Simulated assay, not measured.
Amino acid sequence: MGFNKAFLKRDNQYVLPQTAAAVRRLLPQVVFVTNQKQPFLAQPAFQDYSIFEDQWRDRGPLGGLVTALEQVTTPYVFLMACDIPHISNTLMQPLLTAVTNQQVGLYQQHDRLETLFALYHRSCLPLFKAQLQQGIGQIRYHFKALDVKVIQSNNIELRNINTPAELPGWRIKKIG
């Protein structure tokens, strides 16, 4: 994209805080994990949220997930990429309801596990941390060693925005 997708705007408003406000109605705490905290602190739209600086820079989403698992006090972290445009209660609720005692809960669309729209229990932290220390950044690398709840759903659309050409079709669906 050529810029930090966390700062995508729609109608002159940052999309991420709008999405976070909607998610906040379903979850008790919403935090952002980023490589550089300062640009977020400089924008009033982000001031209502905790912002953690990634302790595992340049390790991809797993580094951000480990940072979140190390810092939050809730049993689970719901990991969501900052650039998923179509978020709805009907998309999140089945996942939140289906995960009871599992360590990971996520959707599978066709043959693809949606690791960036998933629940991760704090008990995953030691394995994920060891994985990062070994230089393995793929979130699902050790899924066989974890209790993973996979929800088959070929009728949902989870996709993120990867190119400027996709921006005109960006539509925000509010949760609730």
Rank of each mutant, 00 (worst) to 15 (best):
G176Y: 13
T67E: 09
K129Q: 09
L146W: 12
M92R: 00
M80Y: 07
R171D: 15
A68D: 07
D54T: 04
R59H: 11
D147R: 06
R112T: 14
I151A: 13
T73K: 11
N89K: 11
Q152K: 06
A68F: 04
T97I: 13
F143L: 13
Q138M: 14
P44I: 08
T73E: 12
F128K: 01
K173S: 15
R59V: 03
Q71H: 06
H86N: 10
L41T: 04
T163G: 07
D54P: 01
P75L: 09
L116I: 07
T74V: 05
G176S: 12
V72Y: 05
Y76C: 08
K174D: 10
Q134P: 00
I151N: 09
W170M: 13
P61E: 12
D111T: 07
R59P: 02
G60V: 06
E53Q: 08
W170F: 15
V99N: 05
L119I: 04
R112W: 14
L62N: 03
Q108I: 14
K174R: 09
F52L: 06
Q71E: 04
G135N: 06
Q103Y: 11
T67R: 05
Q93V: 09
L132A: 04
R159T: 15
A68I: 01
A68Y: 01
Q47E: 10
L65P: 01
K149P: 03
F46K: 00
K149L: 13
F40Y: 09
I175Y: 12
G176Q: 13
P126M: 08
H121P: 02
L127S: 11
I51Y: 04
A165T: 12
T163H: 11
G105M: 04
Y107I: 14
G176T: 11
F52W: 07
Q134F: 05
C124Q: 02
T115H: 12
Y76Q: 05
A130W: 05
Q47I: 08
D83V: 11
N160S: 10
S88P: 01
L62V: 06
Q55I: 02
L65Q: 02
L69T: 03
D48L: 06
L132I: 04
Y141C: 04
A130I: 02
Q93L: 13
N101T: 13
L69K: 00
L41C: 03
I151H: 08
D58C: 02
F40Q: 00
R59E: 09
C82G: 11
Y49I: 10
F143N: 08
A145T: 06
T115R: 05
G105N: 02
I84T: 05
Q133N: 09
Q131K: 06
L116S: 02
L96E: 08
Q109F: 08
A42V: 04
H110R: 15
H142K: 13
A130G: 09
L95Y: 02
L119E: 00
T73L: 09
P168V: 14
R122L: 15
T90Q: 14
Q43T: 08
G169Y: 14
N162V: 12
K173D: 15
Q47M: 07
V104S: 02
L96S: 03
F40G: 00
Q55L: 12
D58Y: 07
A68V: 05
P168S: 10
N89R: 10
S153R: 14
H110W: 11
P94T: 08
K174I: 10
M92Y: 07
D147E: 15
V150R: 10
C82E: 08
V77C: 03
Q134A: 13
L167P: 04
K149I: 07
T100P: 00
